[in-house]
């Protein structure tokens, strides 16, 4: 049988089974569904605890941040490690360190090249020049203000990485690598993980569990463990942002230049 026909049949059967199963799901937007309110007669759901208690326990108004960086600290730390491992995997798979090809000739200098890149790219280059600082400042705001407004390390890190990718797209990869070199971003990626791990290890040396930030009040000199948790979350978010920024740019730089890290797109 034709592969496409059998694929279509398999997909339709899967879809039909899923559609049949979905009939038993709670209604869309139902606040009393098991995921939102817990099972009747059983223990209340974890999300109810997060909504009702997490401000008292961490002094962070953004519940997503407090759950991400404190209650689920292990998960977030090793998600960051996964991202770092993905960056390393791409380095191992693609990076070509022993290229025999000569370096590409630099573009001939002409009078039109008063903006980085080709003179055909004036509009793109100027727009990127205006946009990139704004993107980076907003990304820093998203990282630093992730406690009180939507944001955090992952989102801000992706935006910072995108700003460097925009440098590469608006000009060329060589310009972007001059601003954030390969050894720099690999060091920053490791530094991000190490910052996160330090916030886990220091409480351990102070006699508590890994990533138990409350005890850090002795170091931050805050009035109570809640504010120590809040400050520690900002610290780990900065670590996450560094790793995510570096790896997003590493993925782009490796993929767009076939691991050569020279010409690029």
């Amino acid at each position: 049988m034709n592969a496409k026909v059998s694929a279509t049949i398999a997909v339709i059967i899967t879809g039909a089974v899923l559609l049949y199963g979905v009939a038993d799901f709670p209604d869309f937007g139902d606040p009393t569904s098991p995921a939102n309110a817990g099972v009747e007669g059983g223990a209340p759901s974890a999300s109810l605890h997060f909504i009702n208690e997490s401000y008292k326990e961490t002094k962070v108004p953004n519940l997503v941040t407090s759950v991400l960086a404190d209650y689920r600290g292990y998960d977030t730390m090793f998600e960051t490690v996964v991202i770092f491992a993905a960056g390393l995997a791409i380095f191992v798979i693609l990076r070509n360190l022993r290229s025999d090809d000569p370096l590409p000739e630099p573009l001939p200098a002409t009078e039109d090249r008063f903006i980085d890149g080709d003179h055909q790219r004036i509009i793109v280059g100027t727009t990127c020049r205006i946009a990139i600082p704004l993107v980076q400042i907003f990304a820093l705001y998203v990282v630093a203000h992730g406690h009180h407004s939507p944001g955090g390390g992952f989102q801000g890190g992706v935006m910072l990485g995108a700003s460097f990718i925009l440098v590469a797209l608006g000009g060329n990869l060589r310009d972007a690598l001059a601003r954030l070199g390969e050894d720099t971003f690999m060091r920053l990626a490791s530094l991000g993980i190490l910052i996160y791990a330090a916030f886990g290890l220091v409480p351990q040396f102070l006699g508590r569990n890994f990533l138990d930030y409350g005890v850090l009040e002795k170091i931050f000199l805050t009035d109570g463990p809640e504010m120590a948790r809040s400050h520690s979350m900002l610290g780990v978010e900065v670590g996450v942002a560094l790793t995510v920024m570096s790896i997003m740019f590493a993925i782009f730089a490796n993929l767009s230049s076939r691991g050569e890290m020279r010409g690029g797109l």
């Binding site: 999300s47 909504i51 997503v64 996964v82 960056g87 989102q155 992706v158």
Partner: peptide
């Protein structure tokens, strides 16, 4: 307020998905 837990889970899943 909306349930924060699925947002947290998907926040990391999106970035790991990109990687």
């Amino acid at each position: 307020v909306a349930n924060p837990l699925p947002h947290v889970l998907m926040l990391t899943a999106i970035v790991v998905g990109v990687a």
